[in-house]
Amino acid sequence: MTTLTIDQNKYVCQTGESVLDALLRENVNLAFACKKGTCHSCMIRSTNVTPPQSAQSGLKNTLINQNYFLACQCYPEQDMHLKLPDQSDFYRMGTVVTNELLNRNTILLIIAFEDAFEFNAGQFVNLQRSDGLTRSYSIANVPQQSNTLEFHIRRLPGGKFSEWLHDEVSVGDSIAVSEPGGHCFYLPERHEQGILLVGTGTGLAPLAGILTDALAQGHTGPIHLFHGSREVEDLYRINEMHQLAEQHPNFNYTPCLSGTKIPDGFVMGRVNDIVFSQFTDLKGWRVFLCGHPDMVNQMKKQAFLKGAAIADIYADAFLVAQH
């Protein structure tokens, strides 16, 4: 018999009873469907212990790493603290220390915290305004001593939150930040594996974090970054990426433009077309895709068909709020 804790509430899990069955018996509202470990509907997270291995079978390794598990397959061996998917996030206050333009429509926003903020490079957080308006943004930096989070935020026409960040937020202002989420990040394993990073627009943010992390952790395999937009004015960090490529022989950077004006040093075309004209076989590669949802979904399928294993494809599609 073990105890399951959710917030302040404690529930008993009988011997031979799954976490899902225990919670359902206790009238805790948790989504589920097949109860066979196939549909992944009942995936939840342990915040205190590593779940039994059998409850994590078939999950992405970045989910396993964060102690996600399938409630229907979990017969606890010790007391567990649980976090359900719909449980409200814990927010803490940070202070804006930088708000400056990266290009004509994208700002670099840096938020500092008093204590360390734990996350994996490539994850996202929710930012919340005092009236409750909330949006998700990818973190662009790697965890470090300075306790800061860095974001690249594009001004969306009519976008309430991005216009507020661009026009009204200044250095010294406070902003509420949720716990990090998402499973699109680098794990330090298979150092010799090829890594393909493809992003459009501010999709560079999580990719830049993942890239920095992989290089810092001594990844030795080839790393290729493709960053695409329509016009050169909508790309950013171009010089920094070229410099990184000079410093690291295994890192390769290709800026891509889908518009008509193509300066020297840029490749013409849509980023997915360019990538797949250069990479015909992705067997054994780790692939990270971030940016426009259509691009991400299309590339996910293409990468899979080119031989990348589904477990090696990490994607973060931007969800764009309509108002």
Binding site: T38, C39, H40, G58, N297, K300, K301, F304, I310, I313
Partner: peptide, 8 residues
């Protein structure tokens, strides 16, 4: 959705 399809 690819991930859901693979599960199915």
């Amino acid at each position: 959705d690819m991930d859901k399809q693979i599960a199915k």
